[in-house]
Design a protein around this nucleic acid. Structure first.
Lengths: 164, 164
DNA sequence: TATTGTTATACTCTATAACTATA
DNA sequence: TATAGTTATAGAGTATAACAATA
């Protein structure tokens, strides 16, 4: 009970010695609250996907290819916010595991078109079910669909992207 | 404009070719939305703290020591959700930069008590001002204090920690 | 025997630079 | 010259194991 395995335990309370340790020095710090929530969710996701040895980013790749078979590597990389240089490694590993297949684009022989293999489709379908289940539980924790929609809207506002 | 430097551009819209690319395959995926918001905020924070060559975790250490001078390494590590083994490296770097000072605890000679040096106090004060400013801007983006409070409550709910 | 802190190590994620093959 | 993809590499972040000093 000493190490905090990427999880917090108790903080912000009276410390029992009389000093009433004020909240937590980072309790007003949105960046850290956000980080902990994100790490917590990813940790749970990794646990849920663990039986398939899939990390969140790999699942994201499956979903992107499923949605747009034949998508190029650069487009796929951009859509999951991964640099093309790192995507090359990521997709190579997934190809080695026979989850995805690459074809040279006939119209531009530099490009590689991405497809799911039958095995990739199966895993994508199975893991999607687990994922949907988990999202439903998250939505419950949040207090329902409206709360979730509000959360998503605020997260997108934080992302400082949505054009003014 | 090819690489997506840890930032997304446009997604989810008609793609101009008539295919109306549906939303984004990850748009319903809370984990990814959370991750992008967190990365965006940390990126902005790193930029803001950049002049002081402080990363978010280092700033967190300063704040924790400021709040509780003399705190032990294990307590400080736990309060920012970093393993003690990694905290050792982190704090050693900050000591080398003369931001913090370590004293052997008189009551338990295994323990090290942490303090801010005068330089550390100065940086902590200056960066706290920048940080508070940034938090205010974030709160505005969110739509005010109430929205922010709602966000924090939901993020904590996601963290699956708050005792039932 | 348990705890505090340290070192060594490893794996993932992210980033830059240099390269190839096409265009 | 510019683009799609690759390789090599480097830095953070996070994890485990083994250890020293102290309790």
């Amino acid at each position: 009970m000493t190490d905090a395995p990427q999880k917090h335990d108790d903080h912000a309370r009276s410390d029992g010695a009389g000093a009433t340790t004020a909240a937590h020095p980072l309790d007003g710090h949105l960046g850290f609250i956000l980080r902990r929530a994100q790490l917590g969710v990813f940790q749970e996701l990794t646990g849920i996907f663990g039986a398939y040895d899939l990390r969140p980013a790999q699942f994201a790749v499956l979903k992107v290819i499923e949605a747009r078979p034949g998508i190029s590597q650069s487009e796929a990389a951009e859509s999951i916010s991964v640099k093309t240089t790192n995507f090359a490694t990521l997709i190579a590993q997934m190809e080695a595991r026979d989850l995805v297949r690459r074809e040279t684009s006939p119209t531009d022989r530099r490009g590689r078109m991405l497809f799911l293999t039958p095995g990739g489709q199966t895993i994508c379908r199975d893991v999607t079910a687990l994922w949907a289940d988990y999202e439903r539980r998250l939505t419950e924790r949040l207090g329902g669909d409206d709360a979730r929609a509000a959360l998503v809207a605020m997260l997108k506002a934080l992302d400082a992207d949505t054009p003014s």
